[in-house]
Design a protein around this nucleic acid. Structure first.
Lengths: 229, 229
DNA sequence: TGTACATCAGTGAACGCGCGTTCACTGATGTAC
DNA sequence: TGTACATCAGTGAACGCGCGTTCACTGATGTAC
């Protein structure tokens, strides 16, 4: 039976991470302290090194988990809708983003706020960091295939077409420039709105930020799916 | 002559702030250290307290300066355009935001990133924090007065009209809901795009983020100023 | 099933650092008469 | 213009903390025969 140790290991790792999240929420990722976690767990500080190679590795694992959690949340919201009901899928995705962020504000901050100083995100964080964007990309592709055309203006700028060819190949998709621009704009608007709200920049502006956010999401959806053939 | 001391005071204060910015850029605001600044200036750490009451007060002054700087930059860009050339003003403002952010990435991070843990922004930071938004608000009002109508969809939601009445009174302006929604959406999209770029979330997406950003700004402007009477 | 050995969790001391802030003090600059 | 006094910049020691990481070690769990 290898179970007892393995189970204990999992439990203790989880508890370390839990306490780390509490600490990050109250004092910020930059002040995450292994010694303080150890103190709270009534263990020697050196014991932490049986579970994580270093403070940075703990941070990395938390970041990866956060990316996974937000992706799970967005995917679940999307999956609840009929595949061909693009508008509902859009709204579900938009709302799930904000809901997740409000429920886990410091987790959101850890991945979308100022990068932790001196911490270089290792390559392990890149793939999980893509998962949540794939939900949007799939939605855009489905919308395009279903005949929707985004109602936005393509700029007359020189480099634009070329740049957007790069973007498509980088993202591994093929879409009309209008749809791509509208999608990226909507993406930026939602995260911008959520960051403003979470980081306290609109406290004196909105009474119910959620009402504004829903209106924003609705508007972005209409713009994305404006014309359907 | 009271000049010598006063001049020295100004110079030394400025040098402290300069070194503080360098430190924040390399190690993050959370790790800003008065002792390290003192070391670099070859002074006793206690001497810092002749210039700033505390570490937090230094941070506050930096934040206020950043808000002032970004406001100066945006106001200057706006002022270069003919008052009635709303489209140019919009583009100038949009570009100046990103330009400032790219030139002062850590200054941007200090005000728009994750709030510094344990640091409660004092009321002094509220007014300077409003100045840069006023440039946008003035632009929206001018556009409305000039007869522009934003081409966005107002949502059918219940609370929306009421919420937007609050927003107008909070911001001290009077605008059609379409214009307000389009303006807030554009604002969120620009800061979202800039944060994504600065915080490293689109490194694998764009080749020239500036090309995308300009296209985005153009599109947002068209949406904001879509119909003119 | 029982024993010998290897693996692993956890300890506690140590290394070599760091920090913000206070306080009594010195000596130079500035001010009032 | 010269002197007496007040203001202020800067010092250095101290208080009371904090940190990540390493290392040799103990004792329990797990594994192979």
């Amino acid at each position: 039976m290898t179970g007892i140790r393995a189970a204990a290991r999992k439990e203790i790792s989880a508890e370390i991470k839990r306490l780390a999240r509490v600490q990050i929420a109250s004092k910020g990722a930059a002040n995450l302290s292994l010694r303080e976690i150890a103190r709270e767990m009534q263990m020697a500080s050196s014991a932490m090194y049986r579970y994580f190679d270093s403070r940075d590795q703990l941070l990395t694992e938390l970041i990866v988990e956060n990316y996974d959690n937000i992706a799970d949340s967005v995917e679940k919201a999307d999956a609840k809708c009929a595949r061909d009901d693009i508008r509902s899928r859009w709204m579900a995705m938009a709302e799930s983003l904000r809901t997740w962020a409000l429920r886990h504000p410091s987790d959101y901050g850890l991945i979308f706020g100022t990068p932790v100083p001196g911490y270089a995100a290792p390559p392990d964080t890149v793939d999980p960091g893509r998962r949540y964007t794939n939900v949007l990309l799939r939605l855009l592709v489905d919308a395009h295939v279903a005949g929707y055309v985004a109602t936005v203006d393509i700029p007359p700028a020189k480099g634009f077409v070329k740049e957007y060819k790069h973007v498509q190949s980088n993202l591994g998709i093929s879409l009309p420039d209008e749809m791509l621009l509208a999608g990226l704009a909507a993406w930026a608007a939602m995260f911008g709105a959520i960051s403003f709200e979470l980081f306290g920049h609109v406290d004196q502006v909105f009474v119910n930020p959620g009402t504004h956010y829903s209106a924003l999401a609705h508007m972005l959806g209409e713009q994305l799916l404006g014309i359907s053939n």
